[in-house]
């Protein structure tokens, strides 16, 4: 494909850019450990403020790992500018893909006065948005945090000229692969049946319910999940809180909300 010829000619220029987030997905990238030296040897990291002293913030990039949600005008301006200069833009982590935990403020009341008694120099936008509300995204790397093995797979794929494939099935599939006992059988409430896989289901494996951090799968059976949760004593109000924890964003979530309300 075109990307191969383009990226393989010279060392790919890769940038890691951070917006509103906890920056955990960057630390997850560092957890590639010894594999990271191979990444450093094979790509040119031209912009990564967290690791580098001198960063090319105006140049063109082959691949960008865009972390975080858009919550300030400054971020939105940067995002749009980066998109124009980037061949392959990755929405890196749940904040970039869905809005994540920062987007919870889209439904919080009086959030400013509650946290800051008098307002500092704020530039916050009215809503916290996933990046595809403003620019085209070439690949979604979901998870709070992302999984470092997936990050490595994506880089290797890009370097060898393949478009990385997204895992379009639910967390339950990975639980079955690992032979993890279903949490519903222990009376716990799990979001695995309606959540994107790709994490290798570490939470159910450690007996912790999936809380849906990779976001809702498009062809999920939401109605059945809602019924399961209700059967386990979850109230209407809590259903909304559970389903909106990582993707509190209107248009992406409207359908889910309708089904929850039904």
């Amino acid at each position: 494909m075109e990307m191969k010829s383009e990226i393989m000619k010279t060392k790919a220029k890769v940038a890691f850019i951070g917006m509103t987030s906890c920056k955990g997905c960057f630390f997850e990238f560092l957890l590639l450990n010894r594999r990271i030296t191979a990444v450093f040897d094979n790509v040119q990291i031209t912009n990564f403020w967290m690791l580098k002293e001198f960063n090319d913030k105006r140049g063109k990039y082959d691949v960008v790992f865009m972390d975080g949600a858009v919550s300030t005008d400054r971020e939105l301006e940067e995002l749009k500018s980066v998109r124009e200069r980037t061949k392959f833009l990755i929405a890196y982590g749940t904040c970039a893909c869905w809005g994540g935990v920062p987007a919870l403020r889209n439904s919080a009341v009086n959030y400013r006065s509650l946290v800051y008694p008098q307002e500092p120099k704020f530039t916050s936008r009215a809503t916290v948005d996933p990046i595809d509300r403003h620019v085209k995204v070439d690949y979604y790397m979901r998870g709070c945090p992302v999984n470092e093995d997936e990050a490595f797979e994506v880089i290797v794929n890009l370097l060898t000229g393949k478009k990385p494939s997204e895992k379009e099935y639910c967390v339950c599939v990975e639980c079955k692969k690992r032979e993890t006992k279903c949490l519903f059988k222990e009376g716990k409430v799990c979001m695995g049946p309606v959540t994107y896989a790709g994490c290798n289901a570490p939470c159910p494996e450690s007996r912790t319910p999936c809380d849906g951090c990779r976001g809702p799968l498009p062809d999920r059976n939401i109605g059945a999940e809602v019924q399961l949760l209700k059967d386990h004593g979850i109230t209407e109000d809590d259903l909304k809180l559970i389903f909106s924890k990582y993707n509190n964003v209107a248009e992406k979530f409207e359908k889910v909300k309708d089904e929850v309300a039904r």
Binding site: P102, R105, Y111, L114, V115, S124
Partner: peptide, 9 residues
């Protein structure tokens, strides 16, 4: 760094 207003969330 953008404020995330955690306390209110």
């Amino acid at each position: 760094e953008a404020s995330r207003y955690f306390e209110s969330l």
